[in-house]
Design a protein around this nucleic acid. Structure first.
Length: 876
RNA sequence: GGGCGGUUAGCUCAGCUGGUAGAGCAGCUGACUUACAUUCAGCAGGCCGUUGGUUCGAUCCCAGCACCGCCCACCA
């Protein structure tokens, strides 16, 4: 029939289908009369290279999108990339560094030219890699956060928020990365526990230098910028100190002692140096007490002229120098070990500096409220649910968002300043000119804000900006809101939360209903996969070696919470693909054109038990798999399909029918099961299923746009499943003889055992030989054939059945003990229930269904007890 | 410091309405059998972290404890 090779070769097959899908544009979705189903891809960074996290994330999305497409939805999966401001700029700056230049050397315009050139050349890499995974994105729709239209959306949002007074500019302590030389948001500063030191330093009093106040600090170099020392007003130790003057060592500046509730009595010495320009708490105290702010540091982390003799020292060198100087002059009291959390830049891992500067902020409280409510009232659901708490906890403690970045790659802030530093927020410079003229009454020259917006300030618009917002159009109308979002927990705050806020603020609707949070892919030892650790498995290499289907399948079936993966894990998927392939070969080798013509139609009543059984299994698998997918239980869905296809279809059905191939009905059933199995396998393993399905020649339809099998209730029979199951158990028991069968002396058994599986025959025969020696079997006939297997269900082998379960146990005494334990347990339960039922008060008060349940349970227990009794007595 | 999760076979994990536990892998036995050795048949291996509570009955529900992991956080 078909010439399928004995081993599945993913490479050629995958390449072939990728181009068929692409040429046919089969994943293109347009507004139609179907129901919409939309997912937007979490846009990978343009600098991204496919890693296992992407592979997992996108496989999950692909499974759902393909499934929904098969279920008749107009399913759109919107692809695209994120410009990744700092990350991309870092990459290009590294290139420049090789030429011995910095971005300042070549200037803003030339730098942007190089950035775009880099983006145009390498920015598509990650998407091509995602495509190789089999991702069924609507590729022609691919968006980029710095597309012209998208940039308009960003600008629009800035202006709208500004007009609502939700954006403001302020002088605040922010997280500053001295390497990237930009501000970071609170989320972009990663806190890590560091083993540091706590330095105790003497600050002498002005009027009596023999008296000192000892302060404790972890960042002694910032003392150069101290403008006060704070104590707690209730601190008995320092009663009357407030208001006195100290002389700052080294600098000799006079500073006051202030009293502030913020100061903890327990920590350190109870006296805190106050450096308003270099610490957020100190800044707040400074505001409360009207303190001066002294900035001692340049943007690159080197101390400035305010630092006196320490000028031009890097902050860490300065720390050492300050300590040395303090020690030398007798101000250093002691140094203690101290662990504390230190912020690090999430892009370059440099220690972040709390730094006073003028930045743009978004007022988050008003935006957070509807977004938090949406989750509270169930309009948006997290899967697994527990992430809702994490989300809400952040939302309820939300702080303003620093959105300006001192880099060049990104959306430039749409604000212009005149010579008096008045700010004009406008869509274009011309508009700003007009506004300025209106306000100043004359033309003034303007300069645009140098800064760009945080990358996330564009990403948070992704679900609707990709569909064309702020323009009104059919796409937006039809595909928004999206249905599900798939992401890792790391970016719940960065992205998910903000998207929800933006969705409500700008669209008046939630951007999606379901948020699926998947685990992190880790190596076998549980470490995060990373290039620097050298433990990363490259998905492309895995695809190359095992195939994309194998990668997808293995990844998903392993996904519980976090996913621990090693190379061997991908054998699961590869082996399964091979199994599917070979089962298909077997079927294709044995079916006739007649069966091929219409294998979807057959008389169900004429089928034998194994056929009815496999159909029953098939259809219950179909519905259970669908249910699992809908509930976002992907690994369960895969297990169900695999268990059915391999464990039931291949291991039992195909073995049983080996000698029945001449029966057209059997051929039809085999083809029918294969065809439908391919359909339910398709979302998980798109390539191999397409390839095999093609051989079924059901019209010219690709599996990618065929439909999910309809559930046929009439094929699902519990009786058939039970009968067949007991047969399977029976045959299994017979197979499993040797040590297990414990035949009583003098007992003889005569039986005819039919074995369909030729392979099994030898194994079993051997066992039976042993069995004959061991027990007293007079004769056992072996017969490779099918008809008798069917008969077995109706009782021919039933005689064997009688003693297998009982004498098949090695340690009868142990089993007896178990059974009598069980009996006592049941007896106790029965008594308890019976007692309850005789209690007239209980019967009066308890709801009828409870009583009914009790009665039912009592009956079951009593039945079990009587069965147990007979079994126990037969054992002795 | 606050919050969240986990603890089940050697390993990775299921166990989604409470009825003394399942899978895959690894291990061990056995089968060269024309769909598949990327295979097939089988075996063994578990006081379901610990202490209490609720229940006739707890891996499951409740509380405490221990250990592991993650997230958040401005005690310098």
């Amino acid at each position: 029939m078909t010439e399928l090779s004995s081993r599945y070769d993913p490479k050629t097959v995958e390449a072939k289908w990728l181009s068929i899908w692409k040429d046919g544009n089969v994943f293109h979705a347009v507004p139609s009369d179907k129901k919409p189903f939309t997912i937007v891809i979490p846009p990978p960074n343009v600098t991204g290279i496919l890693h296992m996290g992407h592979a997992l994330n996108n496989t999950l999305q692909d499974i759902l999108v393909r499934y929904k497409r098969m279920r008749g939805f107009e399913a759109l999966w919107m692809p695209g990339t994120d410009h990744a401001g700092i990350a991309t700029q870092n990459v290009v700056e590294k290139q420049l560094a090789k030429e011995g230049k910095t971005r300042y050397d070549i200037g803003r315009e030339a730098m942007l030219g190089r950035l775009w050139a880099w983006k145009n050349e390498y920015g598509g890499t990650i998407l091509k890699q995602l495509e190789k995974l089999g991702s069924s994105c609507d590729w022609p729709r691919t968006r980029f956060t710095m597309d012209d239209a998208y940039s308009e959306a960003v600008k629009e949002v800035f202006i709208r928020l500004y007009e609502k007074d939700l954006i403001y500019r302020g002088n605040r302590i922010i997280n500053w990365c001295p390497r990237c030389q930009t501000a970071l948001s609170d989320e972009e500063a990663e806190h890590k526990d560091k083993n540091g030191k706590l330095y105790h330093i003497k600050y002498p009093f002005k009027n009596d230098s023999s008296k000192q106040l000892i302060v404790a600090t972890t960042r002694p170099e910032t003392m150069l910028g101290d403008t006060a020392v704070a104590i707690n007003p209730t601190d008995e130790r320092y009663k009357g100190y407030a208001g006195q003057t100290l002389v700052l060592p080294l600098i000799k500046r006079e500073i006051k002692i202030i009293a502030d509730e913020f100061v903890s009595l327990e920590f350190g010495t109870g006296a805190v140096k106050v450096t308003p320009a270099h610490d957020p708490n100190d800044f707040a105290m400074g505001e409360r007490h009207g303190l001066e702010t002294i900035n001692i540091m340049r943007p690159d982390g080197v101390l400035n002229e305010q630092a006196g003799v320490f000028k031009d020292l890097d902050r860490f060198a300065a720390r050492k120098a300050v300590i040395a100087a303090l020690d030398e002059q007798g101000f250093l009291v002691k140094i203690e070990d101290h662990t504390h959390a230190v912020g690090h830049c999430y892009r370059c891992d440099t220690v972040v500096e709390p730094y006073l500067s003028k930045q743009w902020f978004v007022r988050m409280m008003p935006l957070a409220k509807p977004a938090a409510d949406a989750v509270r009232n169930g309009q948006i659901k997290f899967h697994p649910e527990r992430w809702e708490k994490v989300y809400l906890n952040w939302m309820d403690n939300i702080r303003d968002w620093c959105i300006s970045r001192q880099i060049w790659w990104g959306h430039r802030i749409p604000v212009w300043y005149d010579d008096q530093s008045n700010a004009y927020v406008a869509r274009t410079e011309a508009e700003a000119q007009q506004k300025a003229k209106g306000q100043r009454g004359k033309d003034v020259s303007l300069r645009q804000d140098e800064d760009v917006l945080d990358t996330w300030f564009s990403s948070w618009l992704w679900p609707f900006a990709t569909l064309g917002w702020p323009a009104k159009n059919q796409d937006l109308e039809f595909f928004y809101p999206t249905n599900a979002l798939f992401t890792a927990s790391e970016i719940i705050f960065f992205w998910v939360a903000r998207m929800i806020m933006a969705g409500y603020e700008f669209m008046g609707k939630a951007p999606f209903q379901d948020v699926y949070i998947h685990g992190t892919v880790r190596d076998a030892k549980g470490r995060k996969m990373s290039k620097s650790l050298g433990n990363a498995l490259d998905p492309l290499e895995i695809i190359d070696e095992y195939g994309a289907d194998a990668l997808r399948f293995s990844l998903i079936i392993n996904s519980g919470q976090d996913i621990f993966i090693s190379k061997e894990k991908f054998e699961i998927g590869r082996n399964f693909a091979n199994k599917i392939w070979n089962a298909s070969r077997l079927i294709f080798m044995n079916v006739s054109p007649e069966a091929f013509k219409d294998y979807q139609n057959f008389e169900f009543d004429q089928l034998n038990l194994p056929s009815r059984w496999i159909l029953s299994q098939l259809y219950s698998t179909i519905s259970r798999t669908a249910e699992a997918i809908e509930k976002y239980r992907y690994s369960e869905a895969e297990s169900l399909v695999q268990e059915f296809f391999w464990g039931s279809f291949c291991d039992w059905y195909l073995e049983i029918i080996k000698n029945q191939w001449k029966d057209v009905l059997v051929q039809k059933v085999a083809l029918h099961v294969l065809s439908n199995s391919l359909k339910i396998l398709h979302p998980f393993m798109p390539f191999i299923t397409e390839e095999i399905y093609k051989n079924l020649q059901e019209g010219s339809v690709n599996l990618s746009n065929s439909s999910w099998p309809e559930y046929k209730k009439e094929y699902v029979s519990e009786d058939d499943q039970k009968t067949m199951q007991s047969m399977i158990d029976l045959i299994s028991s017979i197979r499993n003889t040797r040590a297990q069968w414990n035949i009583k002396p003098n007992e003889t058994v005569e039986c005819v055992l039919s074995v369909a599986d030729v392979r099994l025959l030898n194994a079993i025969q051997k066992d039976f030989e042993n069995f004959q020696v061991l027990g007293k079997i007079r004769s056992v006939q072996f017969e490779a054939g099918l008809s008798k297997v069917n008969d077995a269900a109706s009782g021919v082998v039933g005689e064997i059945r009688y003693f297998i379960p009982l004498s098949g146990i090695v340690d009868i005494q142990k089993e007896k003990r178990r059974m009598s334990d069980q009996f006592t347990q049941l007896e106790k339960t029965a008594n308890a229930i019976a007692g309850r039922l005789q209690n007239s008060e209980f019967v009066k008060k308890a709801p009828p269904e409870v009583i009914a349940k009790d009665q039912e349970r009592l009956q079951i227990i009593q039945k079990e007890m009587s069965e147990l009794t007979s079994v126990i007595s037969s054992l002795s």
